[in-house]
């Protein structure tokens, strides 16, 4: 950990090393698991998602609930196994390795390098275990260090996430801590093994507004100091803007637009991104803007028809969008990718 701190500034800017590449990642959940059902329906939770993540970079995934952003994150840390597709991930020797279907010891080794911070700090810790037990658990199951070393490493990590002095937190139970403190513990648990990649699944959405920025600042600082890459899942565009250098907008299991955060938010191309942005409240009662008219609400992608996923709600769709399969992600200029025939 100390090496990473020494070359603090060097990491994010200097390297453009590929850390993770998702290729046509899909996850389908069968709706009926009956023994006699020969042709069950599938929920296409994530459907052919591809993206790259550089070392030290933070990629945001934004979208409504149910659009598949959490499932994407869970597949990348292998809490879910992809139905199709590949996840290439840098291994210890610096080569890219497909982790999509790892098992046994290779999977366990991979888990040292990829961790997750969960949304709900109240449920993500076993109420019967102390903070020390919780944060030391990864070290324990991975058999890293002996008891004294673990204690030292846990204290160090607790200090790193701003729980100081660590000794006053080690032997407390989660219910004795506030939401913000718990989320710091959850971050400490994710970082205790020095992972290179962390999936953050809306880590601030359950927290009080007043402590959100603190947690976001902490995560940003840690990324810079330790050279961690985040996949930052959120439905809050303001959070995405604060945290992420690039964002991907998801709709019904597909990435509909992806690019530099500022570019996407200032100048959206896809009609869905435009609609999302128009739904952000403006803290000014006088402010007016053109409402984007989208119909209905987000549906469940059960055996979707071979047409644009956004067709039913799109204000600019025509027959071409209905008769052709979902549009591919295409470069719409200046490195911006969008999946729309009309944009």
């Amino acid at each position: 950990m100390s090496e990473a701190t020494n070359n603090t500034q060097a990491i994010p800017a200097a390297t453009s090393r590929l850390l993770l590449r998702a290729i046509d990642l899909s996850k389908r959940f069968p709706l009926s698991s009956g023994w006699w059902d020969r042709n069950p329906s599938f929920v296409h939770a994530v459907d052919g998602v591809s993206f790259d993540l550089m070392a030290g970079e933070t990629l945001g995934i934004v979208g409504e609930s149910g659009c598949g952003k959490t499932t994407t994150g869970r597949m990348l840390v292998r809490l879910a196994e992809p139905t199709e597709g590949q996840v290439l991930f840098e291994n210890e020797s610096g080569d890219l390795e497909d982790i999509a279907h790892l098992k046994g010891q290779p999977l366990k080794d991979f888990r040292r390098r990829a961790q997750m911070v969960f949304q709900d700090p109240y449920e993500s810790m076993n109420p019967r275990r102390t903070i020390f037990d919780t944060v030391a658990e990864p070290l324990q199951v991975q058999k890293i260090g002996d008891h004294a070393e673990r204690l030292e490493r846990v204290s160090e990590t607790l200090g790193l996430v701003g729980l100081t002095p660590p000794s006053s937190f080690l032997f407390r139970f989660p219910h004795e801590l506030s939401g913000g403190q718990r989320q710091r513990v959850a971050i400490a648990r994710a970082l205790v093994m020095n992972p290179s990649f962390v999936v953050a699944d809306e880590p601030t959405s359950m927290l009080d507004i007043s402590i959100r920025t603190g947690i976001m600042q902490l995560m940003g600082e840690l990324a810079d100091r330790l050279g961690i890459s985040y996949l930052y899942i959120t439905h809050d565009l303001a959070v995405a803007r604060y945290m992420c250098s690039r964002i991907a907008v998801m709709y019904l299991g597909k990435i509909v637009e992806m690019g530099e955060t500022e570019e996407v938010l200032q100048n959206p191309v896809h009609p869905y991104t435009k609609a999302l942005l128009s739904a952000v409240p403006v803290p000014d009662p006088e402010a007016t803007r053109d409402p984007i008219d989208i119909k209905g609400s987000v549906s469940v992608p059960v055996d979707p028809l071979p047409r644009c996923r956004f067709y039913d709600r799109c204000p600019i769709a025509d027959n071409f969008c209905r008769d052709n399969d979902h549009p591919p992600l295409q470069d719409k200029g200046s490195g911006r990718l969008a999946a729309c025939y009309k944009a």
Partner: peptide, 24 residues
């Protein structure tokens, strides 16, 4: 509960999760 997922993503096996998280 998410702490079961957290234990899995830490690399905990079935036996570990059942014994340490579920049974208690």
């Amino acid at each position: 509960k998410p702490y079961i997922d957290a234990a899995r993503s830490a690399g905990g096996g079935h036996f570990h999760i059942i014994l340490v998280h579920i049974v208690p």
